[in-house]
Amino acid sequence: MSNEKPCRACTDFRTWAKRQKEVYDSEKGVQKKQDQTPVTSDKSNRDDCPLDKDELGSKSWAFLHTMAAYYPDKPTKNQKADMNNFFHIFSKFYPCNICAEDLQEQLKHSPPETGSQEKLSQWLCRIHNEVNKKLGKAEFDCTLVNQRWRDGWLDGSCD
């Protein structure tokens, strides 16, 4: 393992914490015991820690879906261009390099559909589902995006 500082935005919290400890121990010359248990640091008592990869992903998707949910039904040419540019710029600066490169590839094959709120929300749902497939997660029913991100569930549970 290299002594490069672990990337918090590129790994889940447990893996990051374990790697931090390994780097610290190697810098201090601490020998790892054979029966040493893995680091299982609990950050549940704090809500002001840097985001790990899973939290960053979840919160980024929430932001993107919410932004798409409030995109105009009839956007101007400038709004269409700005939204298209936003996704391309977002993909260049996303803190997780693997995720950023994946999004850049997706944008090449499926550029943002900025013609309306519905088109943008459906496009983003499809992109998100592609990521979910790669991660072995369940796909979201894209017919429900506005209930999930804008209007609330029909059963009134969000009221």
Rank of each mutant, 00 (worst) to 15 (best):
Q34S: 07
V23G: 03
D35N: 11
K137C: 01
I98D: 13
D82S: 13
P95Q: 08
L64K: 10
N146E: 05
L144I: 00
Q20C: 11
W123I: 06
A81F: 06
L103Y: 02
P111E: 03
F90T: 04
D159R: 15
A9V: 07
R126H: 11
D155G: 10
N132S: 06
W149N: 12
L154Q: 05
C158G: 11
E113A: 12
V39Q: 02
F63Y: 11
Q79W: 03
I89V: 10
S157R: 15
Q106P: 01
V23I: 14
L135E: 14
T37L: 06
G156P: 15
A138E: 04
L56A: 14
S2Q: 15
A17L: 04
Q31R: 10
F140S: 11
M67E: 10
R150C: 04
K134H: 11
W16T: 04
S121V: 00
A9P: 08
W16P: 02
D151I: 03
D151L: 08
E22V: 07
D35A: 09
K28Y: 13
R148P: 00
Y70T: 09
K32M: 01
N146A: 08
A62Q: 15
K53H: 14
F13P: 01
F86S: 02
E101F: 06
W123K: 11
L154W: 07
N3T: 13
T40F: 00
N146L: 13
A138W: 01
S121C: 05
F93A: 13
K77F: 02
S116P: 02
S121Y: 00
Q31M: 01
Q34W: 00
N132E: 06
K80P: 00
W61Y: 15
A62C: 12
M1K: 11
A100L: 09
A100G: 07
T40K: 05
S26I: 06
P112V: 05
E4F: 06
A81E: 14
A81C: 03
Q34A: 07
A9F: 13
W149L: 09
K134L: 11
E22T: 05
Q31E: 07
M83V: 08
A69E: 01
G57C: 07
Y70P: 05
F63V: 10
D151H: 04
